[in-house]
Design a protein around this nucleic acid. Sequence first.
DNA 1: ACATTAATTGTGT
DNA 2: ACACAATTAATGT
Length: 209
Amino acid sequence: MQKLISEIFIRAGFHQKLIDEISLAGRGKRAEPGEVVISPYDDKREIPILLKGLLKVSSIDEDGNELFLYYLGGGEICPMSLACCINGEGALFSLVAEESSSLWMIPAEGLDSWMEKYPDFRKYVMASYQMRFQELMSTIDSLVFHDLKERLLNYLLDTKQATGSYIINKTHQQIANELNSSRVVISRLLKKFEKEHIIEQHRNQIEIL
DNA sequence: ACATTAATTGTGT
DNA sequence: ACACAATTAATGT
C-alpha cells in the first residue's frame, strides 16, 4: 500500500514533504466490487483518493433513486467528496467500487492547509475536478438532450472506456438502476442493439463490438 | 444424470 | 407498468 501511495503521488508531482504528510494523516482502505464506499448522508469527514481500481459515482435522490454520474479512475481524488466537504453538507451521492480497489482516505481538515502550502496539491485537485466536471457535463447533456437509447449507448461506451474492456459484466436490472430506468426498457434496447450488431449478449454479460 | 429452484432475460398487452 | 414465458445457472438427490 505504502508503495502504491508514493507511486501515485510522485506521478502527480507531489513534494516529498506533502507525500509524508498525506501518508501520515490518511488511512488505507480496500473495497471489493459492489462495496459501498460512501453512501448519502454518511457523516464522512474523509475524502477518498483512488489509488487503484474503479469506482462508480452516482447521484441519489430523496427517494433513493440512483442516477449514474461517472466513473472515477486510478490516481484521482473524488471531486464529489471535495464539493460536499467544502460546503459541509452530507453527501448526496454514493460511491461504489466497480472493481477491486485501493483507496487512501484523507481527513477533510487537512485539505485547506495542504492547498495553501502546496501548489502541487492544489493543481492536482483542480485537475481531477476539471476532468470529472467535463465528464459530468456530457452526462447531463445526454440526460437532457438525448433519449434513453443514446444514454444507454453512451453508458456502454463510457463503461468500456473506464474498464478498458469490451466486456461488461452487469445485469439489465443493474444498468436500469444506474440509468434510473426500468429493466424491461433496457432489455428491449439492448435487444435492439444486438440486432444492429452493436453488441452481443450473454448472461450477465454484454460484449461491445 | 435428472429434478428443482432462483435469477435473468424476452415479449405481449 | 405489469404479467408471464423462456432461458440459464446453481444446487441437491
